[in-house]
């Protein structure tokens, strides 16, 4: 059986989560490997959430927020952008392939983009194979 990765998504309520809904409303098909957690703003995402996702066995983590400048809370995603850039460096330092972590700005009207990103990211994670570096066996 081919490798079916588990991908954790964290999406902000106002843009990416709504964009994901739009992908559904317009019946765009994409791989079912992604499981999305909804938060109100991408700025809510604590780097520990990302580390924890990998510990829990996520093969990839996808974060979605509003486009910079379009944040529902004015500046939240600007903080998120910087914080997640640092998170990426820590992940790299810890030996996680950078390709396993992605941040995308997807607006509420970009259902197409959501489906494309998920499709492409899932393919990328499949190529990378299972993530065992951080995974805590239970």
């Amino acid at each position: 059986m081919s490798f079916e990765p588990k991908i954790l998504g964290i999406a902000c309520n106002w843009c990416t989560y709504t964009g994901a809904d739009l992908a559904g409303t317009t019946r765009l098909e994409y791989p079912q490997n992604l499981r999305v957690v909804r938060v109100m703003c991408s700025s809510r995402i604590n780097p520990s959430f990302i580390f924890r996702a990998f510990q829990l066995g996520a093969d990839g983590v996808l974060v979605g927020g509003c486009h910079p400048g379009d944040c529902h809370y004015n500046t939240g995603n600007l903080y998120a952008r910087r914080r997640l850039a640092v998170t990426r460096k820590i992940l790299e330092f810890a030996g996680i392939e950078p390709g396993r972590f992605r941040v995308e700005w997807i607006s509420a009207s970009e259902g197409n983009k959501f489906a494309e990103v998920v499709t492409e990211f899932t393919r990328q994670i499949k190529n990378l194979g299972p993530q065992n570096k951080f995974k805590i066996s239970q």
Binding site: V39, M40, C41, S43, R44, I45, N46, H72, Y73, G76, Y79, R83
Partner: peptide
């Protein structure tokens, strides 16, 4: 407004 930025 409940964005959660401060918590992070």
């Amino acid at each position: 407004k409940g964005c959660g930025l401060c918590a992070s």
